[in-house]
Design a protein around this nucleic acid. Sequence first.
DNA 1: TATGAATGAGCCTTCATTCAT
DNA 2: TATGAATGAAGGCTCATTCAT
Lengths: 224, 224, 224, 224
Amino acid sequence: MSSTKASVVDPGMTASERPGRLAAGQDPVKRQQILDGANRVFSQMGFDAASMNDITREAGVSKGTIYVYFNNKEELFIDLCQQYKAALFDGIYQALESNNSDLREALIQFGISLSTLITSNAGIRAQRVIIGVAERMPSMSSSFYEKGPKKGLALMRALLDKHVAAGSLAIEDTELAAYQLSDLFHSGLLRRRLFGQMELEPEPEQIRKTVTAGVDLFLKAYKA
Amino acid sequence: MSSTKASVVDPGMTASERPGRLAAGQDPVKRQQILDGANRVFSQMGFDAASMNDITREAGVSKGTIYVYFNNKEELFIDLCQQYKAALFDGIYQALESNNSDLREALIQFGISLSTLITSNAGIRAQRVIIGVAERMPSMSSSFYEKGPKKGLALMRALLDKHVAAGSLAIEDTELAAYQLSDLFHSGLLRRRLFGQMELEPEPEQIRKTVTAGVDLFLKAYKA
Amino acid sequence: MSSTKASVVDPGMTASERPGRLAAGQDPVKRQQILDGANRVFSQMGFDAASMNDITREAGVSKGTIYVYFNNKEELFIDLCQQYKAALFDGIYQALESNNSDLREALIQFGISLSTLITSNAGIRAQRVIIGVAERMPSMSSSFYEKGPKKGLALMRALLDKHVAAGSLAIEDTELAAYQLSDLFHSGLLRRRLFGQMELEPEPEQIRKTVTAGVDLFLKAYKA
Amino acid sequence: MSSTKASVVDPGMTASERPGRLAAGQDPVKRQQILDGANRVFSQMGFDAASMNDITREAGVSKGTIYVYFNNKEELFIDLCQQYKAALFDGIYQALESNNSDLREALIQFGISLSTLITSNAGIRAQRVIIGVAERMPSMSSSFYEKGPKKGLALMRALLDKHVAAGSLAIEDTELAAYQLSDLFHSGLLRRRLFGQMELEPEPEQIRKTVTAGVDLFLKAYKA
DNA sequence: TATGAATGAGCCTTCATTCAT
DNA sequence: TATGAATGAAGGCTCATTCAT
């Protein structure tokens, strides 16, 4: 996911270049074209300041067409947020799910994946937009959280539980410990990024360093 | 700062009851009256969805008057954000600044103050609003961060440096450690609150528990 | 003309089932299919509120096809109004044209035919639509009136003139008398129907009673 | 009521010339100014084809102001229709209500008042507009009918009942008779006017002649 | 000085019409 | 030839800002 283009499908040609003709609102390429335009606009302006005209221009599609694919501005936004979730969280849990014998390595791998995504430009923009409307559209931000952070937390907690049972970790409250670990993954990165204090995406090396330091801090304190 | 009324000044009478007459845009009580109304509206709607009419109604002041005190909606918003910073961060650094011999206790006190504020309803709303416009008004979110988190981080780091020098802590990178500590203060609280996953302000007891666990984790791992 | 289907032609098969292939815009069955759909939509919504999409759906024909048969929405509407006239007024003048020796019976028969039609659901809808656009499309309502009421009036007047000449009626102004008679045919029916004060089509018995009373009133006053 | 200006109030100055300042949506002159503009536009275009921009221009008032006085287009229209009713029917029943001993004269006076109004330009336009939306806004056309025709009919019927009881008239069904009479008032006028077959308002002389002929026809047939 | 009625640009959305398929 | 996806002007309505009172 690049910082300006959230495209998930990419058949290598634009909607108008493709052969055949699809039913109204059924062309996935055009749909994605609209979502990409909407992503750029919503990311920069937030939901309310973004105008359908802006999206029209950015997506290179006429206004009427947008309304064939999406019933209204809010539904377009909701669909875009679904895509944010998918783009951010799909497939980053492998490091935890694969039966990894080395706890430290598994946590570091997962932490790097997670931190890389949520501190990426696209990830930061998505979080900003969603946090910005959390007061008025609580269900959206809720579902974002549940699809993303919550799932990772559950997996981490299960992993910690296993190691506690095996005697390799000594943790009283594994739920709290999972929260701690997940925050340690992006110490000094996420918050600064969200508030615009760090303009560029952190370098992979910086992420690795931060994650490693966090995991080591965590393991040193909690080892049995 | 209560969750519905952010008034910082309270001279015990409304603007119109006060004696004398101030130059246009010079009455600090009326100014605060406007900011309080704006706070309630911006907190609920975000910057763009809030209307000046809403603020007019909420502040109990006429539209013309608002424009005497603030040039436009954006400046009103900026001034309000300045106030957020003041309300949130002024006077919470004593626990660190006072010459406290007990490190653990000092960190816990500071952590509780900080976490209580930034997970309060008012604090969450302020952060949401500011994060929501971070893309379009980077300077505002930046200055918010600098006034708030950054200052606390600098103080914490200085404290850590002192203890490292004194040999009671063994930390290689105290900057990173300060980030880690500040994130551990609100593990499992801030993020859930921001995304609307935790509707009510956390109980003081929950905050104390979280902060204590974070500080203990930190100290256990970093003690010399 | 039923209230929901104004079809005048019915060749027993839909356009696409018919053999051969007609030049664009030349198939009278398809043309009627469009007019029937348009009738249903225009009747319910009026000219301006009706959308070509509604008509498309109702007619079961594509938008492009409609534009092959009719240049634009207005022409479709005009053609439909022509059809209203035909459907309403064609063939109702026999009672007057046939050389009927019994004046009373002839007037009653004609009155019943006329009142039945113009108070029918289809008739009321057609009149409403046409009256509704009379200000903007005067020629259409004019021609509707001329094809319908005016012709009947002329025939009635001729009949009255004949009876005046024969000495059986004593009428000074037979033009005015014809107007009076035509209004008496639907006393208490037409106006209430137009303004929606009578929801259902009047029963045949009610029409007969009204027409008979009107004719008798008329003849009693004007008999020689 | 002139044909282009339905103004009921006329304080001799425009809203902006008047002294003092009224609360939003409370200035009756400005309100009337809007209604007058709306009247001109709705009369010419009908409800659906009329645009709020047209009304804005015609009323000489900004769009925002219209929305202070009326919640939306439909409410503006409804209020205008109320005014149509008032302008058309208020105070035309005196001829019937005053204790008039001469039946013929009373009916003629009332008939002239009624016919003059409902065949006036303003009256015709109002009826066209209301008939044009009768299918979609049945309550409006219903209430128009009830305020207008229905009330006159009830009064006429009561009068006829009185004369039947007194033995001066012999009518079986006075309800039907009242309908007949009311239609005879405008024989050859109303319908032609509605369908645009008579461009100019009928001359007073023509109305008098028509009404007189109708009343005489009626009385001759129904006299005891 | 404070007020709030008025303004009009701009918002989201619809729909008559076109034209590539 | 028939189709219906795409267009974009125009619709109803809102709201930041102004200015007469």
